[in-house]
Amino acid sequence: MPLTMLPLGKSAVINVCRAKEPTRKFLEGLGMVPGALITVISENGGNLIVSVKDSRLALSKGIAQQLLVQM
């Protein structure tokens, strides 16, 4: 399911990243690789603050929709 559907405070494992090449590469550098654990810390109008590998990342809704996760 897309990351946008993950409830607040819940964790899941990243499955696939469907973002375009440069964005995906950037996300990989930030620790968003398949297999990584991701937790939703806060939500604001579809935009998310997530926790991945000890860092906090802000993602717009568009990106969150391209990240498929598994609980």
């Binding site: 906090r56 802000a58 993602l59 990106i63």
Partner: peptide, 10 residues
């Protein structure tokens, strides 16, 4: 505008 991805420092 480009999708927004940014690290939030503590």
């Amino acid at each position: 505008a480009e999708a927004f991805v940014m690290e939030l420092p503590p």
